[in-house]
Amino acid sequence: MPSPVPVTRLLPKDLYPSVDIGTCSSPLTKHSHGSATLQVPVQRLHGRVASRLWSSVIHWKELRSMQPVGSGGFGSVYKAEYLGSTVALKKVKKCTKNKLASRQSFWAELNAAHLRHRNIVRVIAATTCVPASFGDESSIGTILMEFVGSRNLQQIIYGRAEPLGEDRWLRYSTDIVHGLRFLHSHSVVHLDIKPANVLVSSEDVCKIADFGCSLKLDHGSEMSPISPHLSHVGGTYTHRAPELLKGEGVSPKADIFSFGITLWQLISREQPYTGDRQHVLYAVVAHNLRPCVQNLPVFESEQGRLCRTLLSRCWSGEGRCRPSAEELLPQLEQLRPLR
């Protein structure tokens, strides 16, 4: 069954009058060197030419070799072949406890679908129209994305099998900030930046994934109030900005706070907090609790002290005191000569 949310929520306004629910796909174009990119279709609408970067319909007969690679609170991810290329397929499932939140999560996944950047996972197609042979009653919709790989930063940080020296964590953190700068420049706030939501490609490039908590701010707005109708806003409590915990407005600075916690994890390879969840939430807001930088040797070097200063700015309790992603990039660059 298609979602009751209207198709106008899924497609740009200049496209939805001509939506063909039958077969409207953006095929992958295979290049001679073996790589695949998305071919942008061009349509003539009411005498105008319009284009979009992703499709509202999936050619289900072209899907092959689906293999499960992971699952989360709102869906399962599969590796598959689509039109001759490897893709990731995400089924967004209904949450029996909060059906509204799971539906909102699906639409939030598409907030960055029209954007293209090397540090953001690319959406190829998305639809709520799923044939019985591919779907199930618990599925709200399906999203096809580029297949980045099976590794994420969470696995690299805590798996301990791979070295994570200064050059590597600095490169990873710079990748994340480049992605955030691009998202924020297009008024998209991710709201769930954490190591598990940063995929690492075979070329060792970080790509921001999982936009299920994201919000699209009004054009030209730097902050948006949290609507009481939005059940999915929040993200992971260990990385959630204090203003979100207090129910205040959403701004790109919430992502900067989450990045600060993620950067600390990249450097220390430790868990940010221990103890009861509610105690941590209360302490973050009321007592300015943050991950420890005092007793870790990695923060005692000259570079470590600069990192401590950078972290304290990123996870400031006041959003206005945090740097923007644009301001973070040169600050990260300043760490490089110290290696």
Rank of each mutant, 00 (worst) to 15 (best):
W315T: 04
D167H: 07
S35C: 08
D167K: 13
S185G: 01
L15W: 15
S65V: 02
S55V: 11
M223Q: 12
A126C: 10
V250M: 02
R308P: 04
L10W: 06
N288M: 05
I226P: 01
P225K: 13
Q303P: 04
S3L: 03
N98Y: 03
K93P: 01
T29Q: 12
G317L: 07
I193D: 10
N295E: 08
K61W: 10
S105R: 08
K13C: 05
V298W: 02
T262A: 00
S324R: 09
Q271F: 11
G247D: 05
L281Y: 00
S231N: 10
L217M: 05
T8M: 06
A286P: 00
L38H: 08
D218Q: 11
K194W: 06
R160A: 08
D192P: 04
I58V: 15
T86H: 10
S105I: 00
L338T: 09
N119E: 05
S268W: 03
P163D: 10
K79A: 02
S102V: 08
V189H: 01
S25V: 15
T86S: 14
P272H: 03
D210E: 08
Y78K: 14
R103N: 02
K93E: 05
T309N: 11
R9A: 15
A80Q: 12
I156K: 11
G319C: 06
V49D: 13
I157E: 03
G47Y: 10
M145I: 04
Q154I: 00
S138D: 14
G220E: 05
R160C: 04
V92F: 12
V130I: 15
L164C: 07
A113W: 13
Q104W: 06
V92C: 15
L38Y: 00
S231L: 11
C314K: 04
D192C: 00
E302G: 00
L191R: 12
G34T: 03
Y282I: 00
H117P: 11
D192Q: 01
G72H: 11
R322K: 06
V188A: 07
L230K: 09
W107A: 05
A108S: 15
P12V: 02
L328G: 12
A101F: 05
I176P: 05
H219D: 12
K97F: 04
I176F: 04
S258G: 06
A161T: 13
D276L: 06
C129G: 03
C307G: 00
G165E: 09
Q294D: 15
H59K: 14
G275A: 11
D167A: 12
D255E: 06
G34W: 08
L183M: 10
H46T: 13
R168Q: 10
L296Y: 02
P337M: 09
V284T: 08
K79C: 11
S71Y: 11
F147C: 13
R171L: 02
A88P: 12
E327S: 09
R322N: 04
R308W: 03
H190V: 00
A88E: 07
C307Q: 15
V148N: 04
L28H: 03
R339N: 09
L296K: 13
E81V: 02
D204I: 12
K246F: 01
P4L: 08
L144E: 10
R9P: 01
L217Y: 09
Y78P: 04
L89C: 11
L38C: 12
S25L: 08
S139R: 01
T96L: 07
